[in-house]
Design a binder for these strands. Structure first.
Length: 214
DNA sequence: TAGGCCATCTGGTCCT
DNA sequence: AGGACCAGATGGCCTA
């Protein structure tokens, strides 16, 4: 994957949250008769048998199942099946739109440049994970400075990205693997919405760096 | 042009 | 039975 512009991130909350489905909830997203985007691939009326031809041999084989014992009213049955499939497709489409609007909402609360290229889905999830981890660490540091020393937390206890056997989360983008990359503009005070204790400790060398969240 | 990302369709499985 | 969720397949768009 090509390096993302956020590699050189300073802190700014993007004003535009880009929600294609504003106010979308689990129960109201798109009407089921919404027109598909221009890049819808398969004709909406592609029946199962046709789908076999559309999609390849495995689906063709599956579509062939049923053979001779088909009910007499196959026309009605396939009509019903098509209708069910169409409804299922609509639901699935709405479900994915819902998921995407949730991802957009998540992008909206992550610190990015306004003119940054939109984070991909996986980048958004990784960024959010690392961002939460970093904020947690910041709170710990603040607590530490307020209440004095406390026993060190074993690596990975906080779900630290890259702190253990957490698979994909411990990727090359992990803050741990790139620690020490302090950005002069990295200050949580630029987040009006964030309730972060006013401790300068996160500005010290080796502290949390927003450019490393990805 | 290859590769990454994405939206969509689809059938299977599980749950209510 | 019907809906939610999931993963595989497919093709379009975009960028290096």
């Amino acid at each position: 994957m090509a390096p993302h512009p956020l590699d050189a991130l300073t802190i700014q909350v993007s004003p535009e949250t880009q929600q294609p489905f504003p106010g979308a909830s689990d129960h109201e997203v798109l009407s089921s008769n919404s027109t598909p985007p221009s890049h819808t691939l398969i004709p909406r009326d592609c029946s199962e048998a046709e789908v076999g031809d559309c999609r390849g041999t495995s689906r063709k084989l599956r579509a062939r199942r049923g053979g001779r014992n088909r009910p007499k009213s196959e026309l009605a049955l396939s009509k019903k099946r098509r209708s069910r499939r169409k409804k299922a497709n609509d639901r699935e489409r709405n479900r994915m739109h819902n998921l995407n609007s949730a991802l957009d909402a998540l992008r909206g609360v992550l610190p990015t440049f306004p003119d940054d290229a939109k984070l991909t889905k996986v980048e958004t999830l990784r960024f959010a994970h690392n961002y939460i981890w970093a904020l947690t660490q910041t709170l710990r540091i603040a607590d530490h400075s307020l209440y004095g020393p406390e026993p060190p937390v074993p690596c990975g206890e906080l779900g630290s990205p890259g702190g253990g056997s957490n698979g994909d989360w411990g990727s090359i983008y992990s803050p741990v693997s790139q620690a020490g990359n302090l950005s002069p503009t990295a200050s949580l005070e630029e987040f009006p919405g964030l309730q972060v204790p006013s401790s300068p400790s996160y500005l010290l060398p080796g502290a949390l760096v927003f450019s490393d969240f990805l």
